[in-house]
Write a protein that binds this DNA or RNA. Sequence first.
DNA 1: CGCGGCATTGACCGAAGTCAAACCAGGTGG
DNA 2: CCACCTGGTTTGACTTCGGTCAATGCCGCG
Lengths: 224, 224
Amino acid sequence: MAPFCGALIRGKRRVGSADRDAVRQRAYHTHAGALVFRWNEAADHVFAVCEGWALRFIELADGRRQNLSVLLPGDLCPTALFQEKFHYSVEAVTDVCITRFGRDDVRRQMLHDPKLRETVAKACAADQRDVEERVVSLGRRTAEEHVCHLLLGLANRLSGHRVRADHSYAFPLLQRHIADLTGLTFVHVSRVLTELRNARVVDVSYGSMTIMSVAELKEIAQLR
Amino acid sequence: MAPFCGALIRGKRRVGSADRDAVRQRAYHTHAGALVFRWNEAADHVFAVCEGWALRFIELADGRRQNLSVLLPGDLCPTALFQEKFHYSVEAVTDVCITRFGRDDVRRQMLHDPKLRETVAKACAADQRDVEERVVSLGRRTAEEHVCHLLLGLANRLSGHRVRADHSYAFPLLQRHIADLTGLTFVHVSRVLTELRNARVVDVSYGSMTIMSVAELKEIAQLR
DNA sequence: CGCGGCATTGACCGAAGTCAAACCAGGTGG
DNA sequence: CCACCTGGTTTGACTTCGGTCAATGCCGCG
C-alpha cells in the first residue's frame, strides 16, 4: 500500500487555506494489543497508520479468528469510502499512531484532486491484490510455502521492494499473529519457523526477521 | 454485487446525447470453459457480466488453482479502475455475455455522476467483503462449514437475499469449481455434498441446488 | 455401442491439529 | 541479587481432517 497521509496533506496544501473543502485530519495513539476500531462500528472515517503495526481481522462467534492483512506505517484503510460499517476489526500489534480523515471530506477532496484519486486507487489495488494472494496461499499453498510467502511480502513492503539478505528488519508479529494470518495454529507456526531457521532460509525471532537466503525464500514462496 | 450495466446506461442517458463523455460499451459472448480474460492482460476495460456464470481465479506455476469469486449476472469487475494489469484470470463456467466499458470513459463519467460513484462503491465494498469472507472460510472453517457458507452466499445472491427452502436454483458449478473455491479436492467436495444431501440440508446435483433446511444451512455456515 | 467427462466410494496416507509438558526471557517485588 | 511469575516459544506423543490413488458408476453423445 502507498503512503497516504502525505498525499492528503499535499492535496490540502495545493488547494490552499481559502478552500472550505480542506480535509480535516486528527491523529491519535493506541497502545499495543488494543482495538483500534471494532467490527460493526460506523465507518465514517478513512484511517491511515502513521507509526507502528496493526492487524485487520475477523472473528467467528466461537472465537476462531482470521487476520486479513498487516497494516504498516503509511497504509490506508479506505473501506469507509465504500461502505457504511466496518466488516472487520483492527488491532494494534505495537503501540500505533493513527490518522483519521472524515469520509465526506475525503470524498469531496477526491473530486477535484486527481493526485489523491490516484493515491486511493493505488491503495485499493494493493489491498485487493494482497488479500487475494492470501486467498491463494490459504487455499493452495502448504504451511511452509504460506509462511515464506507472508514473510517475503512483508520484507518487500518493509524495504521498499529492495530486500537485502542478512539484514535485520524489526518484526513485532508474534507466532500467534502469524498463525491467524496463515490459518495455522501457533504450534505449527513454531515448527515451520524453526525449520526455516535451521535450513538457513530466514530467521524470525526476538522481534526481528533476518533473511538468510533471498533466493531460497522466493523459491519456496512461489512468488508469482 | 450490484447490477451494473443498468447504472452505467442510466448514467449515459441522464447526460444526454450531446455529451462527448458518454460511456461507450460493447457486449460480447464467450462459450462455457473459455477464458474471458487472462492474468497479466492490460486492464483498460471495466467488465460486467450480463448473462451466465464466471469465475475469477489465480493459478500457481505448477498448476495449483484457486478461484477467488463467482461472477453472476449483474456483477462488475472494477479492477481496471484501480490498476493497469489484471492479477487474475476469468473463466466462463456457462456460456456468458460480457459487457465492457472503456476505463477512461467510466472514470470521466464518475466525476459528474454521483449515482454511478455510488454504484461502483457498492460493488467494490461487496467484492471486498466477499473475498474477505472467503479468507475467513479458508483459514478457519472446516470443509463442511466452508461449503455451506459458499452455497448459502450464492443462494442469497441468486434469490436477492430472499432464500426459499425447497426451491430449485439453477447451479452450473461443477464439483471441481467448488473445490477450487474452497481450497479442497473435488473428491472431498463430493463427500461433503453427499453428506449434506443425506442429512437433508442441501442438495446440489444435476446443475441445480435445492436447500432443504435454510436454518440448518445457516447454522453450519456460521453466517455472521 | 463405446467413449469421455463427471460423480461416488473405499483403502490408505500424511500434513497439520491437539494436548501437555518443558523451556526461556523479561519484569517485579522481596 | 535472586526468586517468582507471566507470556511467548519449543518439543514430543498422539489424533484427525482432508488428500491421494484407484476402481466403479453414471449419463449424454457421437
